[in-house]
C-alpha cells in the first residue's frame, strides 16, 4: 500500500529560499540545499521548490539550485514557477529535478503538458491548479497568474483535461483556504481526487497536524503540501507524521 506523502514547499527567489526565517540553527537559512537536507532528515517524502524570481537571471540561477539540491538529496523533488516552454522543462529536469510543475503556462497552452509528457513521461508532469469557489457557477473556478486572473475553466473540467493531455499529478491549491490556517479544503480536494485517476496533492490552509489527517481521511488526498507551518516551526514534518499515523493514516 502506498503511504500518504507530506511535502514541504520552499519559495526560491534569485536562488535563495525566502520566508524560511525561523531556521536559526542552520548556518544559512536561505540556502536551498541546507533547507532541503533539513526537511529530508525530518522525514519529508518529497519537496517542492517554487521559483518566484522576477528576473531572467534569477531563473537561470534556479538551474544551479536544482543541480545543487539533486547532488545532496535522495528524495524526489518538483520545481515550479516560470516554466513556459519544453526548453524550460528540459533545463530543469536535466539539472536533476524529478518533476516540473506547470500552472499558468498549461492553461494558456495545454499542448505544453502533452509535449512534456511525450518527452519525459507523464510522471514528470505536475499540473498546478489554483482554485477558488465561485458562487455564480456553484463550483470551483481556475485562476492563473498567481491567483490574479480568473479563467473560464471550471476546476473539475480543467483537471480532467490536464490528465487527458498527460498530467501525471495535480497540485491543487485552494485560494479560499490558503493562508487561513483553518485546514485544507476538504470538499474541493475530494471532488478533484475522485474525478481524476492520478495522484492529487492538497495545498493551502494547513495550520496544524489534525488538518493533515483530515485531508487524507476525508479529503482523499494522496499528498499534502505546506509551507509556513513548517518554515516557522509551528510544527515539524516528524510531528505531523506521528500524529496522523496515530489517526490511522499510513505514512513512511
Amino acid at each position: 500500500m502506498l503511504t500518504k506523502r507530506i511535502i514541504p514547499c520552499l519559495d526560491v527567489k534569485e536562488g535563495r529560499v525566502v520566508k524560511g526565517i525561523q531556521f536559526v540553527q542552520l548556518r544559512d537559512a536561505g540556502d536551498p540545499v541546507e533547507l532541503a537536507r533539513f526537511y529530508d532528515e525530518q522525514g519529508a517524502d518529497e519537496l517542492v521548490f517554487l521559483d518566484i524570481s522576477a528576473s531572467h537571471e534569477g531563473r537561470k540561477t534556479m538551474v544551479d539550485v536544482v543541480q545543487a539540491v539533486a547532488a545532496e538529496l535522495a528524495i524526489p523533488f518538483t520545481v515550479g514557477g516560470g516554466i513556459h516552454t519544453l526548453d524550460d522543462m528540459k533545463k530543469i529536469l536535466r539539472a536533476g529535478a524529478d518533476k516540473v510543475s506547470l500552472n499558468t503556462a498549461a492553461v494558456n497552452r495545454p499542448e505544453l503538458i502533452t509535449e512534456g509528457a511525450d518527452f519525459f513521461g507523464a510522471q514528470c508532469m505536475v499540473v498546478a491548479v489554483d482554485a477558488k469557489y465561485d458562487q455564480d457557477c456553484g463550483t470551483w473556478v481556475v485562476y492563473t497568474h498567481g491567483g490574479r486572473v480568473k479563467t473560464e475553466w471550471k476546476v473539475l473540467d480543467w483537471v480532467k483535461e490536464a490528465v487527458r493531455r498527460g498530467a501525471g499529478e495535480i497540485l491543487l491549491t485552494s485560494m479560499d483556504c490558503d493562508g487561513e490556517k483553518k485546514g485544507f479544503d476538504i470538499a474541493l480536494t475530494k471532488a478533484v481526487s475522485t474525478a481524476v485517476t492520478v495522484p492529487v496533492i492538497a495545498s493551502g490552509g494547513a495550520g496544524g497536524a489534525s488538518h493533515f489527517s483530515d485531508i487524507f481521511l476525508e479529503g482523499k488526498a494522496d499528498a499534502a503540501l505546506a509551507a509556513s507551518i513548517f518554515h516557522y516551526k509551528e510544527t515539524s514534518v516528524a510531528e505531523v507524521k506521528a500524529y496522523i499515523k496515530d489517526k490511522g493514516v499510513y505514512v513512511r
Binding site: 500500500m1 502506498l2 506523502r5 528524495i75 510522471q123 495522484p199
Partner: peptide, 28 residues
C-alpha cells in the same frame, strides 16, 4: 490510481548480495 506513485513498503523475499544489510523499509 495509476501510476503507482509514492513511497511503498519493500518486502524482502530472498537473500541476495544486492540486498545485503537492507532492512525492510520504504522505496519511491
Amino acid at each position: 490510481k495509476v501510476p503507482h506513485m509514492g513511497w511503498n513498503l519493500l518486502q524482502l523475499r530472498r537473500q541476495s548480495p544486492i540486498l545485503k544489510d537492507v532492512e525492510e523499509g520504504f522505496a519511491y
